[in-house]
Structure formats: structure tokens, C-alpha cells
């Protein structure tokens, strides 16, 4: 079970603002290699967080992140190549085109439920990849080469990525702490019951899908600038979808900081460290996912939170006497953690 939206507090937003400013400033200081790594991490963070909003809070488990990465990336690239617009305008167009695609597809996708929604989004990602591959104006299978002089790089690109990731984090904070987020979680937990309490189901799902697609599209534009040469096998690859799921699930679905941790663990800790051992990397990622789903299905972040609380805080409910007609109060422990607590 994913955590409950909680009342808004001022410090998460303040912390986000502070870290955004610090990261933005770092764009002028860090060396080229670190900046490049930073852009990759921040793009993964934005994509994972966008998936988190849709799946973790809204219960719509999408496998279509790649479609929106590709849409954003190609929209920005094609505008630059074919119209000669400046790059800020191209970046601004990316989320708009991604949202238009989402709006178009929502008519069909939001009629699907559960696994069918997942399969539907996966199909769209694959179909879009095939479409681009056969579309000559978009460069076909060999892709598009961006004019190097016209796109930001180094510190500027990093700062752009910081803004995109910060937007994604801010949106997640909103979903976590707002009335909108509570209603989204209600739809996730029981759609007919939510409708029975006056929640407009389709409208709320669309309200999650559109910003999620926009963020993914924005990240796609940044990725296009970083790659310079984009091709259907690069930005439209299904691995974008799978990485978004993997990173969020490892970190903690439906939490604000989980995807941040997941991106660090999966990309920085695994993919990059094991770059020379591609096969081994896949095996370890697979084993990690199985271990997470088996032993910490809520993800690493909630697990860390619980552990910290257990080590630091008092043990809750220990030796609680049964008082009054308190038998209705009895709770069934939900997992092994509670049992472990008894032993400790």
C-alpha cells in the first residue's frame, strides 16, 4: 500500500527550492563530465517522477513513458532542424506536443483499466517507435542530427535539466499534499467508490496524465539536446519506460523522495558502475527488482524511513493494555516488520 497524502507543510517546498537554486548554481562550477552525468540523472528523475505521479498516486500503471520521451525529443529536434526556431522555443513546444498526444490518446487509454491500461500504453510506445522509423521527414531509422551550435550544452543544458527535474518534484509534492492528490489516491484505491463520493474519475485521471506527459516530454527535449543525434532506437526505446518503472519501484512508488533514491541506486549505482559488464548489469538489475518486490514491496525509501523511525523513535503500541470496549481497536499487523519489532 502506498502512503497517504498528508497535509501540506512548508519545509518540503522550501527544501526543493533551496536544492534547485544550489544545483542551478553548480551548473557554472562543475566540470564537463560531471555535468553530463548530472543531465542524465536529472532526466531520469523527471521521467521516473512523472511515472510516479501517474502510477504511484493515480494507479495508472503506464508502460508508455518512451512514447512521450520520443514525442518531446522529436518535437524539439524537428522544430530546430526544419524551422530554425531558437532552442528555448523548441523546448517550450516539447511539453505542448506531448500533452496534445496524451489528450488525443486519453480518449482511448482512460477507458482501459488495470493491466489493459499498461498494455495499451506499451502498444502506443512501440507503435510510435515504428512510426518514426518509417517517417522520412523525421529522419527515418537513422534519425536527426541537431545543429550543435544551436543547442545548449554543458552548464546551460545542466541548468535546463535542473529546472525540468524541479518541476517534476514540485508536481509530485503537489500530488502528495493536495486535495487533488487525495482524490487521485481515492480513485486508485477504489474507483467506483470515489465516483460515488462525487469525484469525477475521468477528469482527475486526465489531470494526472497531462502534466505527467508534459514533464516526460520536457525531459525528452533535454535528452535530445544531450544526445545531439537522436534516432528511434535511442529516444523511442522501450527501455525509457522500463527504467522509469524500475527506478520508481526500487525507490518507493507513491512517495516524493523514492524516485530520487531509485534513480541514484539504479543508474548511478548499477548501470554506470557496470557499464563494461552490460550483461551482468542486466542480471543484477533483475535480481534487485525481484528482491525489492519480495522483501520491500513499498520500495527502499519507505523501508529506510521505517528503519530510521524504529532506531530513533519509541516503539509504538508496545504493551498497550486493552481498555474499555477497545477490542475493536485491535489491528492485524500488516507485515513482517511488525513481527521483527516484537522480537527486537
Amino acid at each position: 500500500m502506498t502512503p497517504t497524502p498528508t497535509p501540506r507543510r512548508w519545509w518540503p517546498a522550501a527544501a526543493l527550492l533551496l536544492s534547485t537554486v544550489v544545483c542551478f548554481a553548480l551548473g557554472g562550477v562543475l566540470d564537463h563530465g560531471t555535468l553530463d552525468l548530472g543531465v542524465t540523472l536529472l532526466c531520469y528523475l523527471a521521467i521516473a517522477q512523472a511515472w510516479n505521479i501517474l502510477a504511484g498516486f493515480g494507479g495508472l500503471v503506464s508502460l508508455g513513458s518512451a512514447a512521450f520521451v520520443a514525442t518531446g525529443g522529436y518535437a524539439a529536434a524537428l522544430l530546430l532542424v526544419h524551422t530554425g526556431l531558437s532552442w528555448p522555443l523548441a523546448v517550450a513546444a516539447a511539453p505542448v506536443v506531448a500533452m496534445l498526444l496524451a489528450l488525443l490518446l486519453s480518449a482511448a487509454l482512460l477507458r482501459l483499466r488495470g493491466d489493459y491500461f499498461s498494455v495499451g500504453t506499451l502498444a502506443i510506445a512501440i507503435a510510435l517507435q515504428a512510426l518514426i522509423r518509417n517517417w522520412d521527414w523525421a529522419g527515418g531509422a537513422s534519425g536527426v542530427t541537431l545543429p550543435v551550435d544551436a543547442v545548449p550544452s554543458g552548464g546551460n543544458l545542466f541548468q535546463l535539466a535542473v529546472i525540468v527535474a524541479a518541476l517534476a518534484m514540485a508536481l509530485t509534492l503537489h500530488a502528495r499534499h493536495s486535495a487533488f492528490g487525495i482524490r487521485l489516491a481515492a480513485i486508485r484505491d477504489n474507483e467506483p467508490a470515489a465516483a460515488g463520493l462525487g469525484v469525477a474519475v475521468r477528469r482527475h485521471q486526465l489531470a494526472a496524465l497531462l502534466p505527467s506527459s508534459a514533464i516526460t516530454g520536457l525531459a525528452g527535449a533535454v535528452i535530445a539536446f544531450q544526445f545531439v543525434v537522436i534516432s528511434p532506437d535511442g529516444v523511442a526505446s522501450v527501455s525509457w519506460s522500463l527504467n522509469a518503472v524500475l527506478m520508481t519501484v526500487v525507490g518507493g512508488t507513491g512517495t516524493v523522495l523514492g524516485p530520487l533514491l531509485g534513480v541514484a541506486v539504479v543508474y548511478y549505482g548499477l548501470t554506470r558502475e557496470l557499464q563494461s559488464e552490460q550483461t551482468l548489469s542486466l542480471v543484477i538489475e533483475g535480481v534487485l527488482l525481484i528482491a525489492i518486490v519480495r522483501f520491500a514491496p513499498q520500495g527502499v525509501w519507505p523501508l529506510l524511513c521505517r528503519t530510521a523511525r524504529r532506531l530513533l523513535g519509541p516503539r509504538p503500541g508496545t504493551g498497550r493494555p486493552v481498555t474499555g470496549r477497545g477490542d475493536e481497536d485491535e489491528t492485524v499487523p500488516s507485515g513482517t516488520e511488525t513481527l521483527a519489532m516484537d522480537v527486537a
Partner: peptide
């Protein structure tokens, strides 16, 4: 409003938030 025979709570939310959803209607 209909209170169903088989309760359908929003499992991930607190009791208070469950009621708040209705209050937003």
C-alpha cells in the same frame, strides 16, 4: 448518497481523508 452494503474504503488513506473525499463533493 449511498452507503454500500459491502464497505469500500480507500485503503491507502486515513479514516479522516476517506471522509474528506466525500466532503469535497
Amino acid at each position: 448518497a449511498l452507503a454500500h452494503q459491502v464497505p469500500r474504503p480507500f485503503h491507502g488513506l486515513t479514516v479522516r481523508d476517506n471522509v474528506r473525499i466525500g466532503a469535497m463533493a
